[in-house]
Design a protein around this nucleic acid. Structure first.
Lengths: 251, 251
DNA sequence: ATCTATTTGTACGTATGTATT
DNA sequence: AAATACATACGTACAAATAGA
């Protein structure tokens, strides 16, 4: 048996043990989002751990998005569905110390967005389609100010996120959504005095309309082709723009 | 002013406030991985919060991979680089309640792996290349048992993860690594009595060698083409296999 | 090798806040 | 409006780990 000074893997702290225990508990019982977990008091009694230890374990699961707690009667600890936003934030933190360039993001975008467009063709509910059409009218006139141009760009990215939510492949939807969110955060801090790019507006406006047409009539191949052209053009234009990166952690 | 019973956004719990405060602290000061953060005692004094509150906040940041703590003299709280493994685990939890199918994973794989192969062509250090070559010899003979076949498959996925680490695009590297890890976890539980697939072995062995050749001579286009063919063939074979999904949370 | 100092980790008791009935 | 049930916050004491003398 190795001496105490050896580099044998130290036992995990009790808090981490309790957290893992709770995860296993959820998996074993096949609990679903909304299902109730034992509360503080019960866990303290059942596991023989102190209040602090149990609470810290809860915080770990909460930070990972796995549980939610509510105070008051009928409150307690509940299994939570990890939200897409939460997962995006957690992943964004991973890239905090790794610098993602615009090119990095667009390399993925060019590969994925056309496929995503194809996969949602013919799968858009009429009322959603109506909303999309209404959105495009907001951009019928070219942006008058740099600020307006930025708003249009962010709105366009929001459209891509909305589209992603309709994708039947959850992983594809997530990655595309993540990229759009990241680009959105980046461009919030774009320099405002740069010359506005009317070409970008005209192109965006045109592709938007043609894409919606293709999606509505369920023409996956056209949707893919339109999106591919748009992505390549967008990358060329992005390359000309100076972008200030916002460094921060997300909640 | 709305009454107390309205749905105005409740103030965040103190613990969450402290956690956000610490994140902001890191960002404002531009702290880097390894840099020291104020310890428990200092934070208790500086923020006027209790020990439990401060510790729970630390656990939140720890669960997100942002800090690490060490006991003893010279110990304390330190900024951590969120590890790729940690980020993969957090994202895997997001998909716990969303079922990713093999087809979902391969839809992305087919799009991304060829591009990744192209991007690492000519960028593989000689000693790494040697290691890759050595690995392939382990598979010079076809698998004798179902268990051996599974091992080869997992090893092949590990190779793809190693390759991903060399990719200059951190996002592309992450997504491909995530897919390989997820497939690895899935196939650990494949049924063992199914007929072994010698075709899979032969194809894998062949493409492996040709891919390494292309990568070594920096031939990005060939690498991309080889990888694309391999992915499409692999998907066809995977579709014939019954796969048991392992449901669990990751640490 | 043993002790000592330092810093996080665990335990427990009590009080406060919050939301439902 | 009040009682109830639950999480949240606080303070103290002690245990464990680790670097250095």
């Amino acid at each position: 048996m190795p001496p105490a000074t050896s580099r044998t893997k130290r036992a995990a702290p009790r808090t981490a043990q309790v957290a893992e225990h709770l995860k296993a508990y959820i998996v074993e019982r096949g609990l679903r989002p909304g299902d109730r977990l034992p509360g503080e008091a019960e866990l303290i009694a059942a596991l023989g751990k102190s209040k602090g230890t149990v609470r810290e374990a809860m915080r770990i699961l909460g930070a990972q998005g796995l549980i939610r707690t509510r105070t008051g009667p009928g409150g307690g600890v509940f299994v939570a569905d990890v939200s897409a936003d939460h997962a995006v934030s957690l992943l964004a933190n991973f890239f905090y110390f790794r610098d993602l360039s615009i090119d990095d993001l667009y390399q993925l975008r060019i590969l994925l967005e056309p496929e995503l467009a194809a996969s949602v063709a013919g799968r858009i509910p009429p009322e959603t389609m109506e909303r999309f059409r209404a959105e495009t009218t907001r951009f019928d006139s070219p942006p008058a100010t740099a600020e307006e141009e930025r708003e249009q760009h962010v709105a366009s990215l929001a459209f891509h996120r909305d589209l992603a939510e309709l994708c039947p492949n959850p992983l594809l939807a997530f990655v595309v959504g993540f990229i759009a969110k990241t680009l959105s955060d980046l461009t919030v801090f774009r320099r405002l005095y740069e010359p506005r790019n009317l070409e970008l507006w005209a192109m965006g406006h045109d592709y938007h309309a043609r894409l919606l047409d293709a999606l509505e009539r369920g023409d996956a191949d056209s949707a893919r082709a339109i999106m591919r052209d748009h992505m390549q053009a967008a990358l060329r234009l992005m390359r000309d723009q100076e972008v200030k990166v916002a460094k921060r952690f997300l909640a």
